[in-house]
Design a protein around this nucleic acid. Structure first.
Lengths: 220, 220
DNA sequence: AATTTATTGTTATATGATTAACATTGTTAT
DNA sequence: ATAACAATGTTAATCATATAACAATAAATT
């Protein structure tokens, strides 16, 4: 592929926020497609996501796709193109580390949904959970982490252990060669630069809601 | 209170990201305090959270607090001041709507942790869950929502219902007078402008991790 | 055929957030 | 007492993101 015409090169530096929105666009585009909708306008996408049509068009521009005037974007093509950006050809495997309520909720959520992003293992310290199957996902003991990560080609970890175990678990994940971590624990984690870390801080999010509720309620 | 000296007025327009960080600072400051640490430098806070000391000082400046040279910030005072920003005097009550794995995980997480932000009720459509107690939280049927929200003075909803029920549940929440929603469902929700909406999109976050893992792994 | 309209695609501007630069000042060392 | 230092506090510059302005054009209308 020549550098000039390679669209993935153009997409090499997509803004972070655009990546997030592409994921969200795709989810809804899939629903549109399921409903038989073949074309969609930027303002329709915008309305669904409560953003401006310009933003939608800009995002789509950045991934190098073009719609047709007066007809909008071809839903199927757009989905495919977003897939080219977000997915790998062979898909990636993920593991849930910490099979508590949250971990099981995530397993249930993903099981069988995406073909390009699969949860293929769970890990837990609790012997009662080990070797059980949760929504089709086998739960292994933590000390088999390195072994299973290699065998199942797991590159992503979803960290849902209690705060006190988060640091230790992270070290093991890094040692095992994990490439990306989605951290739900409220502890700031230390990972080397080649491991991508994404945080979901539910407590902070809730406190933020509280802050804005307070603010709107005529302040103190 | 004069406008000039009222610190809450100054704090009226704190950046969104600062609010998030304040919540995170506080969590760790509480731990520091528990360990007996009475003073802390900006670079220490920064190291914990993997950000720059300048950012920390700037955030603290914005809330109108001052440390002492060579000694850093008084941990206790800083915690208190962050509390003034984030908390209300009497605290706020929250409800978990959708008592599945995710909902229960959140209930378990918060139960008895924060005095200023309490989960006081759960709601679910499943008759088997109704009137059960989860980690001290009573689960009500959805059709008692308005009633219980008023009685328990609930202003915040944590929405953890399946995607298909999210829109309907949101309407009911808005009708019931909820002031802020923390939405875990992957559906874009429609709320009037006086209701603050914060989204946690776990699927998008995971797809983002996948994207960056792909990107780092030598592309394609 | 000419004009209007509805839409996309792109460039320019504005806003928001982070980082850098630097000014300030107690404390320690000489 | 003076100088050097280690920290804070603030202003300025840079960077990222979103919004606004507008250019282009195919389709519909007259």
């Amino acid at each position: 592929m020549s550098a000039k015409t390679n669209p993935s090169l153009k997409a090499a530096n997509l803004p972070d926020k655009t990546i997030e929105r592409l994921s969200q666009y795709r989810r809804n585009l899939l629903q549109c497609l399921a409903k038989g909708k073949q074309h969609i306008f930027s303002h329709e996408i915008a309305q669904i996501h409560h953003i401006t049509p310009v933003q939608v068009r800009r995002d789509i521009m950045l991934i190098g796709y073009s719609g047709t005037l007066r007809k909008g974007y071809d839903v199927k093509e757009l989905i495919e193109l977003i897939g080219n950006i977000l997915d790998t050809q062979d898909g990636l495997n993920a593991a849930v580390v910490g099979v508590g309520n949250l971990g099981r909720s995530l397993i249930g959520y993903f099981s069988g949904k995406r073909s390009k992003l699969n949860i293929v293992a769970g890990f837990d310290v609790n012997p009662e959970k080990v070797d059980k199957i949760y929504a089709g996902v086998h739960c292994y003991p933590i000390d088999q982490l390195a072994e299973v990560v290699e065998r199942e080609r797991i590159s992503i970890a979803i960290l849902t252990v209690p705060a006190d175990n988060a640091t230790e678990a992270t070290e093991k994940l890094v040692m095992a060669g994990i490439k990306g971590i989605l951290n739900f624990s409220p502890k700031p984690l230390n990972v080397p630069p080649h491991v991508y870390l994404e945080e979901i801080d539910m407590i902070t999010s809730l406190e933020k809601v509280a802050y804005y509720v307070k603010k709107q309620s005529g302040a103190e």
